[in-house]
Design a protein around this nucleic acid. Structure first.
Lengths: 101, 101
DNA sequence: AGTATGCATGAATATATGTTCATGTAATCA
DNA sequence: TGATTACATGAACATATATTCATGCATACT
């Protein structure tokens, strides 16, 4: 009978929770879904697809950016957002592919 | 130029966010991690591994159970919890495997 | 320089979530 | 049946998160 213990250290746990939180919201899942379809999207493009207030969208985008989920790049008047890596996409696919949900 | 739209319907979005929320917390990630190591664990066993108050653990367990993440079965004085399916494990592995985190 | 467009930010508010504490209940044992 | 063990629950409180509104800033256009 080997001892039972948590395999993840505190920092990794908190980091994981932190990132997962930034995904666990309908609007933010939608944003990820849209960014899987197009490599990058401007705030206006996202806004048109999501039908939400500009300010609310901007807050969510900043949130995701701060947590390392999204990258951002300004080009002229527009700011383009993109997924920083595919881990997040996998998570959404995971859930989407699961019949339970 | 085909039109951009969210591929997930509102219900699925909300369900996904709901379940992800139940994972996005250090204590709950730990619980999942422990349940990957042993098929099922009693509340006491979890408590010993986690070093948290019984009541707090119980609240988290009920939360995860209500959201369909955990199954439960009473046997005598003990109540055993187990993961309902592997999707959640995949998500944690996904994050754990990612160097970024 | 003045105006319009695209986006960010901060404060205020609303709502949700986490934690503690006290207590309740179910099963077992003496 | 009374005591103990194992767990759940609810109310109160603390903290975090989401949303709105007003405003600010940057770029581009006239």
């Amino acid at each position: 009978m080997n001892s039972l213990q948590i395999r993840l250290d505190k920092k990794k746990l908190e980091r994981a929770a932190y990132v997962l939180k930034s995904v666990a919201h309908p609007i933010r899942i939608s944003i990820i879904d849209l960014l899987e379809q197009r490599d990058r999207l401007s705030v206006t493009e996202l806004q048109e697809a999501l039908h939400i207030e500009q300010s609310l969208l901007s807050h969510h985008l900043t949130n995701m950016r701060d947590k390392g989920v999204l990258d951002t790049k300004r080009e002229g008047k527009n700011v383009y957002y993109s997924l920083t890596d595919t881990t997040i996409s996998h998570i959404i696919e995971c859930i989407n592919g699961c019949r339970k949900f």
